[in-house]
Design a binder for these strands. Structure first.
Length: 254
DNA sequence: ATGGCTTATTGTATAAGA
């Protein structure tokens, strides 16, 4: 089975890219972030015609996450239980016996901002929830835009970024605390090219100069780890006209 | 070099992203 995650930065704008990508890559499951639209605007029909059923939790202008699947989507859970949040950032569902969690982790804006505090609180709540979720669903995958570059090699210029959002020690600790639950960074289970990134700033020709970050991840639970076959970042959609600033991250499992 | 793009909004400047 092929799983993928992609922050599309507005599904309204990016639907043609998504349709092309699923046609060319045939993923079994595709998790989307930043759909930036209410459920009533979500293109369920166009995706069905492409062979995918969808679950979506969205809002106007900001956030919004979706799961697209060629297989039945069961047991849908919206948002983190027992965590007050008016932002639509989590969608979980069971697909072929695997608990698939699509996450759009807050950006945090700047380390001295309220948004950063929200990000850390949000990550704590995610961790607490996953602890129980892993007990009930030991075959679990957490896919999404984490807005965290876990290590220096995941950042194009670690020195310039020291102390900034996406790489700050508290954020990286939160990422490590996810791994401590028994999750694994599937991308790093395989040999990868140096300077592999999943996001590049629109400005300053970030993509052409490969000034990027690896902030989109697919974590897999202990039970799924031995089933992993390959993991890669598909840079192709980032080269298209009017691209998202993120590009798809892919994992294949048996 | 703290900017630089891109998105959405009942817009024509602002907020947010990362």
């Amino acid at each position: 089975m092929k799983f993928a995650t992609w922050n599309v930065n507005s599904l309204n704008v990016r639907l043609p890219h998504v349709l092309d990508w699923v046609r060319n890559n045939q993923p079994d499951v595709l998790c989307l972030q930043e759909t930036k639209q209410e459920d009533s605007k979500f293109p369920y029909e166009a995706l069905l015609e492409a062979g995918y059923e969808s679950a979506h939790i969205g809002q106007k202008t900001y956030n919004g996450v979706a799961i697209l699947s060629r297989h039945p989507i069961m047991d849908i859970q919206r948002n983190i239980p027992n965590f007050e949040d008016d932002q639509q950032r989590i969608l979980a569902a069971t697909i072929n016996g695997i608990r698939v969690i699509c996450a759009y982790i807050p950006n945090g804006q700047a380390v001295d901002s309220d948004k950063y505090q929200y990000k850390i609180r949000w990550l704590d709540a995610l961790n607490a929830w996953l602890k129980t979720e892993l007990i009930s669903h030991p075959k679990l995958m957490l896919l999404g835009d984490y807005n965290i570059a876990p290590e220096d090699r995941d950042c194009h210029d670690p020195v310039a970024w020291i102390g900034q959002v996406l790489v700050s020690p508290a954020e990286r600790l939160a990422f490590q605390n996810l791994l401590k639950l028994g999750l694994h960074d599937s991308f790093r289970l395989f040999e990868q090219a140096e300077k592999s990134f999943s996001w590049w700033d629109y400005r300053m020709m970030g993509f052409r100069r490969n000034f990027g970050m690896r902030i989109d991840h697919i974590l897999v639970s202990d039970l799924l780890k031995p089933r992993c076959l390959s993991a890669y970042i598909d840079k192709f959609p980032r080269k298209l006209e009017r691209p998202s600033d993120h590009t798809p991250v892919v994992l294949e499992i048996t």
